[in-house]
Design a protein around this nucleic acid. Sequence first.
DNA 1: AAGCCGATCAACCGCAATGTT
DNA 2: CAACATTGCGGTTGATCGGCT
Length: 282
Amino acid sequence: MGRSPCCDKNGVKKGPWTAEEDQKLIDYIRFHGPGNWRTLPKNAGLHRCGKSCRLRWTNYLRPDIKRGRFSFEEEETIIQLHSVMGNKWSAIAARLPGRTDNEIKNHWNTHIRKRLVRSGIDPVTHSPRLDLLDLSSLLSALFNQPNFSAVATHASSLLNPDVLRLASLLLPLQNPNPVYPSNLDQNLQTPNTSSESSQPQAETSTVPTNYETSSLEPMNARLDDVGLADVLPPLSESFDLDSLMSTPMSSPRQNSIEAETNSSTFFDFGIPEDFILDDFMF
DNA sequence: AAGCCGATCAACCGCAATGTT
DNA sequence: CAACATTGCGGTTGATCGGCT
């Protein structure tokens, strides 16, 4: 079936709308209603295609459009709905009075998506992804704290211990000149010499490349080296790095229940009652 | 002052779904 | 029921703006 062009390309204006064009469109729709979008431009004296008129009306000129910044509540609603519906912008917009699908889509792509990525959340699946989290800055700040141990304790209550444990092992690889309290530097830079693993390791890596249970012992030993052994319990047999790292960047959307389950497994976003925010103000 | 660059968002494009003849 | 018309939707583009050098 051949697709007819949405409008006659000849003599049809494109690009930004002028105030005069807006007024013509508003006046016409106030008087006659939108009716047939294809014939509307001609009847309204506009040199635009019907599609352009419809878009201009629904996304900008409609009187019930709420303009201005998105409130925190609106953003939270968008995130929740997106976790269930995915990129169904029109369906999301239907639940946010006064907001258009285009506006929500733009806001998602320019603000919310980036915010989620910074928080280590995959904006597609809404599940945490370690490789999206900016761990280097997070942990550099952590390790540079004079009261490092106390801060680590707080961090461990906020983050899944496995994540914090792993991140503290990876940090020296990301920052060649970290500033550690006391003698931590030397310990952190020391390659894992106790491992008898026959598995070949990357030349510069001090972290085992094989994360199976057999590798947990040296990793736990390093927790002790960096002074985190008291704060974090040792890696458990159930620790599974692969599952932590394997969520694909643009995997098909998980159902909301599964996504929620993942969230509660990897990150604990609940704030403990004794949490002191000032401790994190570097 | 000028140029560059990243962020923002209005508008466009193409496809799919739905409606009409 | 097929053919065509219309509408709706989501991805993408490009103009504009503000901050920075």
